[in-house]
Amino acid sequence: MQWTYLETTDDGYVMQVSGFGGTANPMKVAVKIDGDTVSSVKVLEYAGETAGYGKDLIEAGTGGVLNDKAKAFYDQILNGSFATSDVDGIDTSTGATMTTKGIVNAIKGAIEQAQKAPVVDGDTYTYTLTASGFGGEANPMKIKVSVDKAKQTVTKVEIEEYAGETAGYGKDLIEAGTGGVLNDKAKTFHDNVLNGETKWDDVSGIDTSTGATMTSKGIVSAIQEAIDQTK
Rank of each mutant, 00 (worst) to 15 (best):
A131W: 00
G122W: 11
K149W: 05
G136M: 02
A222M: 08
V43E: 14
D36E: 15
Q229L: 13
V193W: 01
A106R: 03
T100F: 06
V145I: 02
A96N: 06
A60L: 05
S39V: 09
T100K: 08
E160D: 04
V41R: 14
I103C: 06
W3A: 02
T230Y: 04
D123L: 07
D207Q: 02
S85L: 08
S146P: 03
S216N: 07
L66N: 04
W3K: 08
V154I: 05
N25S: 14
A176E: 11
F189N: 06
G164N: 04
I227M: 04
A72T: 15
D123M: 05
M1F: 06
Q229E: 11
V14K: 15
E59I: 01
T9V: 05
T208E: 07
K108P: 01
S221A: 12
V17I: 13
G61H: 05
M1A: 12
E137K: 09
Q152N: 06
Y74M: 09
T50H: 13
N195H: 05
G64I: 08
L78W: 08
D202H: 08
L44Q: 15
T128V: 08
T198H: 13
K151V: 09
Y53T: 15
G177E: 04
S216E: 03
T62P: 02
T94S: 00
Y46A: 06
S221T: 15
I174F: 00
T128M: 06
M214G: 01
E59R: 06
E225S: 03
T198S: 15
D184F: 05
V193F: 00
T50L: 07
A138V: 02
T8H: 11
N67M: 05
D34T: 05
I227P: 01
K32R: 15
I103D: 09
G136T: 06
T178L: 08
A72C: 12
V145M: 03
V147M: 00
A114L: 10
